[in-house]
Amino acid sequence: MELATKKIVLRYHWVFRIREGWGIFHQSLLGKIGLVLLLLFALMALCSYIPPRLDPMYDPMTGVDPKISHSTGPSMRHWLGTDFMGRDILSQLLAGARIAFMVGVSAAFMSIFLGTAIGMIAGYVGRIMDTLLMRLADMIMVMPTLLVVLILSSLFGQLNIWTIVLIIALFRWPGVSRVIRSQTLSLKQRPFIEAARVAGASHLRIIFRHIMPNVLPLSFLYMTFRVTSAIIIEAALAFLGFGDPGTVSWGMMLQWVWKTGHMFKAPYWLLPPGICISLITLSFYMLGRAMDEVLDPRLRREQEAG
């Protein structure tokens, strides 16, 4: 029972579980499509660093083609054309993928963190704490996130992208916390929690060692859905003109199309960000659905054998 063997076996356990999960995931067509799309978007985000290095005019924000002063269609020099002041649309699109990932993943991570922590506390502590936290969750849940962010940004002027992420996170935790709370409630009644109590484990130990590992898979499932909503909220905000003016997001691009009156004149400019927003949210959603099947055996398709 040396430590080395222990580590190997434990690693093997994780490998085994991931492989088992992958086997189920693999059967889901939705999941596979979603994963491939996401990998493509990740590749786009990585590639966003290339164009500005080739030539400063490809910088998505400040790079202007000196020869062009109005929007032009696709060409060898600008594969997707240029915007109204001669900035390259492809490099904007690539930078937009990076922003989308950043906003989506960080807002989702924060709201999952909050939701899981609050849900576990409400479910485990119960009584007055449960009531207070869940009524707070109800209040936040009925507030329309987009509207609140709009009001806030009109109050405080242009919002920084991280402020937007933070606000989205603060408004999107209640759904997660409700699910985590109910899961915690059912776990709390399970005899293995009572066994830990009889063994003398403290409340903190029970929460972190016995409840958290059992709710985390659920949290990560919800994370994929939260990514989707965060990306959509940020895009809507940017399109309405309340985005961070210092970043190039897809919503921002759409806003520029609309503001400069190119809506029906420049499909090469309008369509790419629109399609990208739809596809990235769709792919996160499909990934979430497939993971749902991995985590919840009741959703699994019946096996042919047996």
């Binding site: 399970r190 005899p191 066994a195 009889v198 060692r209 016995h210 590992p213």
Partner: peptide
């Protein structure tokens, strides 16, 4: 100490025997 009735419920599925 206590030994519980249902061994399928009294062990945390996420913890190894050790």
């Amino acid at each position: 100490q206590m030994i519980f009735q249902d061994p399928y419920q009294s062990l945390n599925p996420q913890l190894s025997v050790f």
